[in-house]
């Protein structure tokens, strides 16, 4: 049944990664090369090959995710292993470097890779934290239902505004026709929209006591308040869903950059051997 990918299969992939890290660590500690530890010793090459292998395998995740219906491992196995092996890669590649850093392609690769892992960790944090927030925010509704409810409110607002004074009608018109949800990246990530016409209309109607018929005013006010509530829920929904995807727009391109750097790193190493 339902099992989070962190604890999947009794944390099998965490255990595998821990063993990997432990073995690498012990080898590094007990290895005494001529000079300082570096990528050129037998251990350096071994760890380098291992790290390169892991990197290629981790990148293959993108292909695997898009190929369906095979007898191969479940996607959750891949995802769980992807996380723990990705974290193990930090240790393996650091030991491979022997802590030798400089201004060169090798160090570039190291930091690119670290950045990819870091973005992955951020993504994992999002994946663990946001689904629950999303569900709580939606409270059993779907985005579509919320949007339908808003358009229903809009229809009612338009109907009621037929009998009110021009200024109120204008404010309501703005609220119905010019309220925006989402938009560009910044919009999607913003929860509080300072110039939201719905909020403006709500405030306007709140303060325009006695201008229009009291019962109509109350009807407008309840609808506007309801709509504002729905809007803030949808905006939160949009924000969370945006974040759930956003990190991938960093993680994936940097993965390609890392792979390119990896190729350069290997070519350079063997060219100047």
């Amino acid at each position: 049944m339902h099992e989070s990918l962190l604890i999947y299969r009794n944390m099998r992939y965490l255990k595998i990664s821990l063993v990997l890290v432990l073995v690498t660590g012990l080898l590094y500690v007990f290895h005494s090369p001529v000079g300082s530890p570096n990528g050129g010793t037998w251990l350096g090459y071994t760890l380098g090959t291992l790290a390169a292998g892991i990197m290629v395998w981790l990148s293959w995740f993108g292909i695997r995710k898009r190929s369906f219906g095979g007898p191969a491992m479940r996607m959750e196995d891949w995802a769980s292993a992807h996380i723990y092996l990705g974290l193990a890669l930090v240790v393996v590649s650091t030991f491979h470097s022997g802590f030798q850093f400089g201004i060169n392609i090798h160090t570039l690769l190291y930091f690119l890779m670290m950045f990819v892992v870091l973005s992955g960790v951020v993504g994992l944090y999002f994946y663990i934290r946001f689904p629950k927030m999303l569900a709580e925010n939606r409270a059993g509704l779907t985005t579509d239902i919320m949007l339908t409810q808003i358009s229903e409110l809009d229809r009612e607002l338009s109907d009621f505004s037929l009998t009110v004074d021009d200024e109120t009608a204008k404010a309501v018109y703005e609220a119905v026709h010019n309220t925006k949800i989402g938009g560009n990246l910044i919009n999607q990530l913003t929860l509080y929209v300072a110039d939201c016409p719905t909020m403006a209309a709500r405030i306007f109607v709140e303060q325009s006591d006695g201008v229009c018929d009291e019962s109509t005013r109350r009807k407008l006010l309840t609808r506007l308040t309801k709509k504002e509530g729905l809007l803030s829920r949808i905006r939160k929904d949009v924000k969370l869903r945006c974040l759930l995807q956003l990190w991938l727009y960093i993680h994936v391109p940097f993965t390609f950059a890392t792979l390119a750097a990896l190729v350069a790193h290997i070519v350079v190493v063997f060219y100047y051997w």
């Binding site: 099992e3 990918l5 995710k65 219906g69 479940r74 996607m75 891949w78 995802a79 994946y127 689904p131």
Partner: peptide, 11 residues
């Protein structure tokens, strides 16, 4: 079932 197999997070 592909849907279950393809779910990366076990949901």
């Amino acid at each position: 079932a592909s849907c279950v197999n393809a779910c990366p997070t076990g949901a």
